[in-house]
Amino acid sequence: MRMGHHLAAVLGLATLLCATAAAAADPLKSPACGQAIAALESVRAGTPDTADRRERVHAARSQAARICLGQVDPPARTARPAVAPLQVPPPLIDPPPLPPVAVTPPVSPPAPAWRPPPVVTSCDAGGCWDSDGTRLDRAGPLLTGPRGPCIQQGAVLSCP
C-alpha cells in the first residue's frame, strides 16, 4: 500500500509542475501581461478623445501586444489621403418600345338569315310607304322602289 501512495504523490507533483510550466509558458497568463492590459484600460477610460489620448492608447496597446502576444511593434500608421467617394450616376435604361396595338373594327351583328318581307303601311295618291320606311312611288298599277318595280300581293311587297 505504501507504494500506491508514493505513486499518487509523484503523479500529483508532476501534474502540478506541468500546470505551472504551462502557465509560465503562456504569456497571456503572466503578471506582466495583466499589468499591461490594466494600463491600456486605464488610458482608454481617461480623458475625452483627443490626439494626445489617441497616441497614449496606441502606445499602451502596442506595449500590451508586445508583452501578452509577443508581437513586435506594428509599422507606423500612414495617413490615407482623403478621397471623396465615387459617385456613379444611376443607369439610364430605356424600356423597349411597346408593340403596336392592332385596332380591329367593331363587329357589326350578323344580318338575320331571314327577314320578313316589307309590308305596305300607308298609301297616298303618289305612292306608298313600307314597313322599312322606304317610299315606293306609284307608276300605274305598280309600285317602284329604289331598286326597281315591286310586286304587291295584298299588303306584302316583293322588291328587288
Rank of each mutant, 00 (worst) to 15 (best):
A139D: 10
R66M: 14
A9F: 06
A36L: 02
P106S: 11
A111D: 08
S42K: 15
L17H: 01
R80H: 05
R80E: 12
Q63C: 03
P110W: 03
P109Y: 01
L86Y: 10
A14L: 15
S42G: 12
A82W: 14
R53C: 03
R54M: 08
G46Y: 00
R147W: 06
P106I: 13
C33A: 07
A45P: 01
P149F: 04
V107F: 05
L157Q: 04
A79Y: 00
L136T: 02
D49W: 03
H6T: 13
A24V: 11
G70T: 09
P116V: 12
D130G: 02
R77Y: 05
A39K: 13
C68G: 04
L143C: 06
A8L: 15
T20K: 04
V57L: 05
A60V: 06
E55G: 14
P95A: 14
P110M: 00
I151P: 00
G70E: 05
S122K: 14
R56H: 04
E55D: 11
I151N: 12
E41L: 12
R54A: 14
P85K: 13
S42L: 15
G70S: 08
G46D: 04
G145W: 02
A8G: 10
G34V: 02
V119S: 07
P149N: 02
T104E: 12
P75T: 08
A111P: 01
A19L: 13
V120G: 00
P109V: 08
V83E: 12
L142D: 15
L143I: 06
P81K: 14
T50M: 00
K29V: 10
L7M: 11
A59T: 08
V57G: 01
G12T: 11
